[in-house]
């Protein structure tokens, strides 16, 4: 270990204000504040409790996918089938209520099971055939799952879900002015954050993301962790499906197209390395609100959705590109240490 490395290592382990404020999360907080200022200029009603809550509800149903997606990316994997899982589980829920005449509660349980099964299949293929990259497996299942949804519903829609009051209340209802969905989201976000940063399971995710072989030889059950994570992703895609169906009151096979892009953008913008092993849960949570509120604000001033495509696509690339561009000595030093170790 040479002098330089030693010095940096000491700097790494001791607390310094400079380091604390150079974190990516502070950068995100700045963007977050900027977007809120922008939105409050756009709409005078934005900075009120009801305004903020309605802005939050406009994107929160997608955020359920982001929670397990953080796990997936920290593990160094990727899942681009989530949008199709949302569509398939929503279609099956709608059809088991409409065509099979099952009670809605049971239909929701079936929806969650279908989602979990889809995720389980992804994970199962990945652990049985380790030569395959997650990208190609989920690319295949992306077509397959949406294909099955199309096969079930053809070009029809499964409607009439609004007639059940409690079901549409899932999205639209609130208690003391706080939407149910927001409460559910906060509960799950806390649980997921706790799992990632405070439990063994979370440490395993980081370990697999940093070095899968090393993790395997230090006794981490890599297969089990991967299977659980992919099943969770499927399950929470189905949660998104429930809220989405509750919001729209009907389901079609072509809902939730492109959700994978938004979920992955939110995670990557949150500073979670797509190569795995790095990142912080709070970053992803902040960037959910950044992208969601940005979309809401641009929607207020009638910016066409095509511009949103361009904006989110650019954010996705820039979020990965900027940290790679060696901004300042801080990043460079850190990379040097990693290489030497």
């Amino acid at each position: 270990m040479n002098k330089e490395t030693k010095r940096v290592l000491i700097a790494e382990t001791t607390f310094s204000w400079k380091k604390f404020f150079l974190k990516w999360e502070w950068f995100l907080v700045l963007i977050f504040i900027g977007i809120n200022i922008m939105n409050s200029f756009i709409s005078p009603y934005y900075l009120s409790v009801s305004g903020l809550l309605s802005a939050t509800s406009s994107f929160l149903e997608k955020a359920f996918i982001v929670l397990p997606m953080v796990f997936i990316l920290i593990m160094g994997d990727i899942d681009i089938s989530v949008g199709s899982v949302v569509a398939l589980s929503a279609v099956i829920m709608g059809e088991s209520y409409n065509r099979l005449g099952l009670p809605m509660g049971l239909a929701i349980i079936i929806c969650l099971l279908v989602g979990a099964l889809c995720g389980f299949i992804n994970g199962f293929i990945l652990i049985k055939f380790k030569e395959l990259a997650p990208m190609i497996v989920t690319l295949g299942t992306q077509i397959l799952y949406r294909g099955i949804a199309t096969m079930i519903l053809k070009d029809q829609a499964s409607t009439g879900l609004t007639s059940i009051t409690w079901f549409s209340n899932l999205y639209w209802g609130s208690i003391f002015g706080i939407p149910y969905m927001l409460i559910v989201f906060i509960v799950f976000a806390v649980i997921f954050g706790y799992i990632l940063h405070k439990t063994n399971f979370g440490r395993y995710l980081y370990a697999i993301g940093s070095n899968e072989t090393a993790a395997h030889f230090s006794g981490v059950e890599v297969d089990k962790v991967r299977l659980i994570t992919f099943t969770l992703t499927g399950l929470f895609s189905a949660v998104t499906a429930v809220f989405l169906a509750s919001r729209m009151g009907s389901v079609r096979p072509n809902i939730a197209v492109g959700y994978e892009l938004e979920a992955i953008s939110m995670v990557v913008l949150g500073g979670i390395s797509s190569a795995g092993g790095k990142g912080n849960f709070i970053g992803a949570i902040i960037s959910i609100f950044i992208i969601g509120l940005l979309r809401y604000g641009l929607g207020l001033i009638n910016i066409p959705s095509q511009v949103m495509l361009v904006v989110i696509g650019s954010l996705l690339i820039l979020a990965v590109l900027i940290p790679q561009l060696n901004l300042g000595k801080y990043f460079r030093r850190k990379q040097g240490v990693v290489k030497e170790a």
Binding site: I80, S274, Q306, L309, V310, G313
Partner: peptide, 23 residues
């Protein structure tokens, strides 16, 4: 040059270019 993983980079440009096509 940017070191962005291909899936992320092309997923981004997929959306940028699709948006630009409409624009």
């Amino acid at each position: 040059k940017g070191g962005v993983p291909p899936i992320i980079a092309t997923m981004g440009s997929m959306n940028i270019l699709r948006g630009l096509t409409y624009l």
